[in-house]
Amino acid sequence: MEYAVEIENLRKEFKGFTLKDVSFRIPKGYVMGLIGPNGAGKTTLIKMIMNLIRKNSGRIFVFGKDHIQHEAEIKSQIGFVYDVPCFYEDLKLKKLASAIAPFYPKWNQELFLKLMNEFELPLGKKFKKLSHGMKMKFSLCLALSHDADLILMDEPTSGLDPVFRQELLAQLSQIMLDEEKTVLFSTHITSDLERIADYITFINNGEILFSSTLDDILGKWGIIKAGKDLLEKKDIPGIMRSQKTEYGIEILTSNIKKAQTILPPDSITEKASLEDIMYFMSKGDKHA
């Protein structure tokens, strides 16, 4: 298995927030969703891959190469879409593109023009005149025009209306038909990921809580709703978090099938959505 990104024991200390021992890998050719509540460290992580924020310790490899030793080479293969626009807003789109294009050896001007057309972005328009969604699309357009093998997207869908979101996701689906492309997509809007992600990594308070395939998560994780005394009576297999409610208890488990075998008849099991998981993992009571 080839990995597009490998992060080992990454650490970064800020005042009041620390990214601790973050390790995970993104296999090449897939979409990795990075989920977590606001302030969990998603943006910091993506910026550290791009060396916008310097790490205190740990290692990051992109396409097998150290991300600082081969910084320029690696970045020529990375397309980035940040949550906050970073372009000179008083310039026209074509000017912005012409300043950036020479930096990428694989820049394809024809493709760029075609994508601008497809995304309905007028070349002669100034960046500040674009809506939020169009600014996002422009970033994506630039990222795709140099045949980037890794696309990093930091909260690309937040602030977009539902129609735009669908369009963006459809674009990503189209991109992923090419098995050479890898995408890291950070968001707190988990419903977007359920349609496009292959892997999910959950980060909270600067720590990775789990990293797994979406298939496994949606297939094997579940929520058990039962009477309050269930926890005292039994050990629930795969228990991750629990939350006491007014009338009972809700338990998040990573092995719903096994759990079902030992549950009392008056309990209910349901599939866990990514949103449920995010909620339980951040707010629920921990278990082992």
């Binding site: 910084e71 690696i74 970045k75 930096f103």
Partner: peptide, 13 residues
């Protein structure tokens, strides 16, 4: 314009 984010993300050091 917070353009350092752009400049530092380009293929350069």
């Amino acid at each position: 314009f917070k353009a350092w984010t752009l400049n530092c993300s380009l293929p350069t050091n």
